[in-house]
Computed example of a mutant assay.
Amino acid sequence: MLVLLPPSETKANGGDGPPLDLSALAHPDLTETRRAVVSALVDLADDVPSSLRLLGLSERRTDEVERNAALLGSPTMPGLLRYTGVLYDALDVGSLTESERARADERLAVGSALFGLVRGTDRIPAYRLSAGNSLPNLGTLRGVWRPVLEPLLSAREDLVVDLRSGAYTALARVPEALTVRVLTETQDGQRSVVSHHNKAHKGELARALARVPQEPRDVEDVITVAKDSGLRVERESEHQLCIVVPAA
């Protein structure tokens, strides 16, 4: 099973690992594309105004450009610790047991605008780049990643649970993947889509899928794991589940 997570705009600072080594990351078929995107992002950082404009940042966020400028020499840490925010707070890999963490590293991966795919043990630096950005001489990241990342993911024969957001889904479509959406339900049964806080519930699902000793192999297994963890889950179609939470 592979659980695809969205990245986060926010990243943890620092790290205790050596500088980025692209050849040491999982999925070596992505190395040349990773090298091209990393190089373009570092070069862009030489031009702060252009970096702010192309990355969609305010003038107060020059620190993010500085991160990109130092990307090749910055300390690294495992990907599942680098990303922060609502989903990763709910995932809470730091509280997993040793065996659960090993399963998380094996089963979870982060869709990344910079690296394409980040596995749990991949050591990466802090950076700023989003799926909707474009880079000089490369164009849109969708155009860069889709030709190499989509075949890699589509070739998998095991279960793929896709928890990515729309922009990251566009980097590589996985037609047979199981997708999940989150709805709130009022006392009278009316439902509406959850926006920001859907990440927390997806993080809870990812945590449950990482912790369970027996690896889920089909949709029914995922439903069972989710319900056992306390989530209310419904199957909406062959390839889509819905997590239902009470409206506030």
Rank of each mutant, 00 (worst) to 15 (best):
S8G: 03
S8Y: 11
S8P: 03
N13E: 14
G14Q: 09
D16E: 13
A24H: 11
L25V: 01
D43P: 08
D47T: 11
S50H: 10
L54V: 07
G56M: 09
R61P: 05
D63G: 04
E66C: 04
S74M: 11
G79Q: 00
L81I: 06
L81C: 11
T84R: 02
V93F: 00
G94I: 05
S95G: 12
T97Q: 11
A104L: 06
E106N: 09
L108K: 03
A109P: 01
V110A: 00
V110C: 01
S112W: 01
G120W: 00
R123S: 08
P125K: 01
A126T: 03
Y127H: 03
N137R: 13
L138T: 01
R142P: 04
W145V: 05
L153M: 06
A155S: 15
R156H: 12
L159A: 07
S165Y: 07
G166P: 04
A172Y: 00
E176Q: 14
A177H: 02
V180H: 04
R181E: 15
Q190D: 15
R191A: 12
S195E: 14
S195I: 14
N198K: 14
K199Q: 06
E204C: 13
L205V: 08
L205P: 02
L209C: 05
R211K: 15
V212S: 05
V212C: 06
P213Q: 10
Q214M: 13
P216S: 10
D218Y: 07
V225D: 01
L231G: 12
R232C: 15
E238C: 15
H239L: 14
V245C: 11
